[in-house]
Amino acid sequence: MDLNIIWFILVGVLLTGYAILDGFDLGVGALHLLTKTDEERRISINSIGPVWDGNEVWLVTGGGALFAAFPDVYATVFSGFYIAFMLLLFVLIFRAVAIEFRSKQESKRWRAMWDIAFSVSSIVIALLMGVALGNIIRGIPIGVDKEFIGTFLGLLNPYSLLVGITTVALFTMHGAIYLVMKTEGELQNKVRTWVNNTIIFFVICFVTATMATLIYYPNMITHFKDNPSFFLVAIVTMLAIANIPREINNKREFRAFLSSASTIALLLVLFAIGIFPNIVLSNPILENSLTIYNAASSQKTLMIMLIMAIIGMPFVVAYTIIIHKIYKGKVKIDDTSY
């Protein structure tokens, strides 16, 4: 295994960490408007209150690692998906503002406005990320000079939108399970019913998206044909999904949450196996694809960063676990809450 492969995996780990962590708080946002009273809404926001900011850092660091390890991918994708990324930034800021400012005023209209902003921006963020992922699977038009030569509207194709909606469904399910862990009493009973609905919604999207991928983008399964043992990953993914309703029915929410977190991670592993060794597939001109070799930084930089990662990542994992442990259990509203 060379440094390029290691960094392909490490960037993947950071983005997977982001998807699992911010995934549940985006999901809570997507479900936010289903809560009705102000108290319920405060519980909903405060369930992610102390952690959402830290969760977003995984995106920032994933972006930084992509810049450092694969500068060409970072440059091509960020400039190529210009409008999409600007919209993403816009909703990311809007969402942060909504969380921060919602409970700062008593006014009902003030709160209702920020509630909508929080929920809509959470859904749009998940959608945009899924659309980006869908386009990476399809491949995007890249010129000989590694520059994107397509258009913004070209990125909004049916397949990518399908992947976008699937991502929203996945995060919503993940967020609903998280919310069951954080709530109690009547609200918890209500959230339980959402979990079942979101599971059904996700499974429908997932099956459709998988069929579409197999039919239209068979390039994604080349490695699975060459190396059948990868198929185990697909099977484990199915089992992880199937395990979610089982744990929920047995009221073992934490294990359900672990199952949905595993589902997210495994889906991204399947995606990574599918695109490897490309990071950005060029479609239609295949040879312009950005791979883990032609788009990477020098071996020296990859090595320096590997040392940093080895020193830094144990701390990161430790903080993440400590913070989530401190704030585990049911939401309690106090004077420091949102």
Binding site: D53, G54, V60, A68, P71, K146, G312, M313, V316, I323
Partner: peptide, 29 residues
């Protein structure tokens, strides 16, 4: 970004790994 990625990127990544996680994690407390 293509020109400086190899140099600038590692400083930025260090900022993420060493500083941002530290700040945002303990900020919660």
């Amino acid at each position: 970004s293509r020109f400086v990625g190899d140099v600038f990127g590692s400083a930025l990544a260090a900022e993420g790994v060493f500083a941002f996680f530290l700040e945002s994690g303990f900020l919660a407390i």
